[in-house]
């Protein structure tokens, strides 16, 4: 690994000043479970590392029935699996986090790191997107908010600009039911070959709102809007589900790589979307 400077700011403004000074030559380090691997492999060679683990502004989880959930970017995957308000109101997050990595990695890895790493297969992206998540982004002059639908730009590329930090994630109060399905050769310690998150909000047997987000089958976590459209305002029966699943599969643009062939990924989108919707539509 190339030598680098290491900073450990104690407050958010201090961290933001440092980031601005370094002007793109520094990387922030949260859990380090993505960053360190890339540095060791030589893919990233930052001049400086800014450790953000001490920033109190990036910590904590709060929930309010009307305002919803706010969680700091430093919330770990382990926190997701154990925090009561998350388990009670957004169980899909606990479930998705429980499928990720191992207990050891989950204690280090953060929600912010998973999103900012901007991998198309990031397991938290699809569930946070179907829940309607918003990124709260801090910079030297304040904060800006951005829907997670617009957060990902390409593999490894998020909408964060130099000098910006992901401060927290906001979720509206939950409506409907949500599930995240992950297909990978191994049950644990594996990267998704395909990940599908589905949320279905039904009122009187009709779909009020549907969200379908697909992981690992496009350059970014992909919202399947056409699939959502055929469900919304309709009765979610087997025919509709099959139709939506097919549309979702058609919407994705997977690649052949060592983890899976394009045909298989596309097929899994169809299978998992159908299974997810079937499970949620059940009375």
């Amino acid at each position: 690994m190339k030598p680098f400077d290491h900073y450990s700011p104690k407050t958010l403004p201090e961290a933001l000043d440092l980031l601005a000074q370094m002007n793109g030559r520094a990387r922030v380090n949260a859990g380090g479970t993505d960053l360190m691997l890339k540095m060791k492999a030589g893919f990233l060679q930052p001049e400086a590392i800014i450790n953000i683990k001490r920033l109190p502004e990036l910590k904590g989880v709060t929930y309010d029935e009307t305002a919803g959930l706010t969680m700091g970017a430093l919330t770990t995957l382990r926190d997701l699996t154990r925090t009561a308000v998350i388990r009670d109101h957004y169980p899909v997050l606990a479930q998705a986090a429980g499928l990720m990595a191992s207990e050891q990695i989950r204690s280090f890895a953060t929600v912010g790191g998973n999103l900012c790493n901007a991998s198309p297969s990031a397991d938290l992206a699809p569930p946070l997107m179907v829940l309607g998540g918003t990124a709260v982004i801090a910079h030297q002059n304040g904060v800006r908010e951005l829907s997670l639908d617009d957060f990902f730009l390409g593999p490894g590329q998020s909408a964060l600009k130099p000098g910006e930090l992901l401060k927290e994630i906001h979720l509206p109060p939950p409506t409907g039911q949500t599930v995240y399905l992950k297909q990978s050769p191994r049950a644990y310690m594996d990267i998704a070959v395909v990940g599908v998150a589905v949320r279905l909000h039904q009122v009187n047997g009709r779909c009020r709102e549907a969200r379908v987000v697909l992981g690992a089958v496009a350059p970014i976590p992909l919202r399947a809007r056409e699939a959502e459209a055929v469900l919304e305002e309709n009765l979610v029966d087997n025919g509709r589900i099959a139709q939506a699943a097919q549309i979702a599969a058609d919407a994705c643009t997977p690649i052949d790589d060592v983890r899976g062939s394009a045909w298989y990924r596309q097929r899994m989108v169809q299978v998992l979307t159908r299974r997810g919707l079937t499970a949620l539509a059940a009375p």
Binding site: L181, A187, R275, G276, A279, A282
Partner: peptide, 12 residues
């Protein structure tokens, strides 16, 4: 045995 959620825990 720890089950992958994908296939085994869905109420279908």
């Amino acid at each position: 045995y720890q089950l992958p959620i994908t296939d085994y825990q869905l109420p279908i």
